[in-house]
Design a protein around this nucleic acid. Sequence first.
DNA 1: CTGAAAGCGCTAACAC
DNA 2: GTGTTAGCGCTTTCAG
Lengths: 349, 349
Amino acid sequence: MSKNPKDPSGAAARQRLQMADIARLAGVSTSTVSRALSGSSLVNEETRKRVLELARSLKYSINIGAQNLRLKQNRTIGVVVPYDAHTRQHLSDPFFLSMLGSLADALTEQGFEMLLSRVDAETLDAAARPFDNGRVIGVILIGQWRHHEQLNQLAARGVPIVVWGAQLPQQLYCTIGGDNLTGGRLAVAHLLEGGRRRIAFFGDAKLPEVEQRQAGYHAALAGRGIAPEPLLHVSASFLPQGGAEAVAELLRRGVPFDAVFASSDLLAMSAINALRQAGLRVPEDVAVVGYDDIELASYFHPPLSTVRQPVRAAGHAMVAALLALVDGAAVASRQLPTELVVRDTSAGA
Amino acid sequence: MSKNPKDPSGAAARQRLQMADIARLAGVSTSTVSRALSGSSLVNEETRKRVLELARSLKYSINIGAQNLRLKQNRTIGVVVPYDAHTRQHLSDPFFLSMLGSLADALTEQGFEMLLSRVDAETLDAAARPFDNGRVIGVILIGQWRHHEQLNQLAARGVPIVVWGAQLPQQLYCTIGGDNLTGGRLAVAHLLEGGRRRIAFFGDAKLPEVEQRQAGYHAALAGRGIAPEPLLHVSASFLPQGGAEAVAELLRRGVPFDAVFASSDLLAMSAINALRQAGLRVPEDVAVVGYDDIELASYFHPPLSTVRQPVRAAGHAMVAALLALVDGAAVASRQLPTELVVRDTSAGA
DNA sequence: CTGAAAGCGCTAACAC
DNA sequence: GTGTTAGCGCTTTCAG
């Protein structure tokens, strides 16, 4: 068909047969066809059969766009993965990806479709575009980053939106997230029980979720009456090299440490490799606990101790929350329980 | 959610303002608004400005569904990730996920949107549903598996479809894939150069891509005049435990080996862990090369040697191919170049 | 330059 | 039971 890039609808599209066609072939009106197809009881059993048979044999399929327009209905929701325009750190973290899978499952179960898009984290209101132009009835955002304000504005504007992240003060939008405080506390308490006392924290505390994990870290220390040592906190990005850089920084500071609590598994893995290169053994010299429990954590060598995020539950919870929102309900934010998974990187005392 | 599960469009949706509203407010007809919004030259400069201004201040956004219906146009394409209903191996392999990211990028660049769905690999023609009902103008399928026939039927039926996978005889659909033969050859040739002679192959050769990688393995051996040893071929699934099972099987067979070529990185990683547990050192006792070069390959310990799949290029190629198909062009299948990445798991001779 | 009117493919009163 | 009719929100001839 067209050379016209504006209209890539294709020859095929143009000839798709429609209700009128099968109506004509069946010798009935389109109304009857419509009713037959929708299982209305207002059609003669025989007619229905004939129509259905015809439709099936001709592989006729109703045009959802037209139906949606007419019915003012819509069963697709937008899923947005923000990405950092500078680093393109986007879809690379397996954790986000598994979340996507979980969402896809939950959505499918409810009979919804998913329009996936990635938007620059700096201009987050682009996330609402598919809602604004009626393509989707609501938006699920994977990754809160530090765009609390923009998210609030979207919510204030009436966009049904659910975001995966931490619950913050003055929050107008609905978040579903893991219990980061408990997660952090469990991880660090475990390290402490193993006899570790100088536990480093790797993560970017400007991100709400990470900040809460850090708070858990502090809480666990406080529980043992240990004062936090600022030098043991290393800011680290979620980027691939984040862990290595953090280790380098920590070594540069010359502060002694016997454990690391990393705010993501990726960070933990890359940190472990860097530790090894620096001649430190894991877990003998340095115990490590990650966060997320991505699938690869158990494949790692040694298998990575980590805090499991409730991915499957998250998908369901987010979808449920969004559908409720769309329905006009007031939906409270929720924290999902989090669980420590002890493997080998934190073994021994 | 709603009392009426059939209509989760919500209160919010109901009040969206439309063209007629801004037409009334601007004191013009909807035709004029439409023209102004579409940048037609048939509108008075002043009128246009007024309309545009009004629309912006009211945050009016055109209803794409209605526009599409009227224009018979559509700029969304379907991306389908088949999953195995039994194993739910679906979205778990990071390689597929990175492909998703790459597709999202390529699509966005071209101004297309992506409708993501997962379908049971056994009933692959469900993949065409969004096409049949006009939601998307074509479909990209990530993962060919062994459903050649079903794919052929879809293509024969006129569904514009591009699949990531291997090129097969009698193929009616368009595939974009890595050069698996070369990939396999490079990997094994590298192992041979390192002095390894008894190289095991892990993978499910019933999958076309894996079969081709295996053919490359044989080709490399043949290049050195080495006859393939059937006992060194172990069928392994892409599932998490695949590598471990394959190692167990290999050990059970009691056949000596000094290297493993695994048909995916995940397989390689899980195999390496199993080898270690069996007391074998990697790479000293057994060298390992994986396939895909997922991001985590370089984080692994030791960093994993592997064959890199051209993920970014793949996204662009698939999108380009699909758009051409949609345009009615005859599109040839393509193999993208593949590259050996030597890291530590295959070090030394 | 602008508006009136027809219609994209479908559904739902409202007649018959 | 079934057909007729009037739109869903938009674009586009076709007249002015």
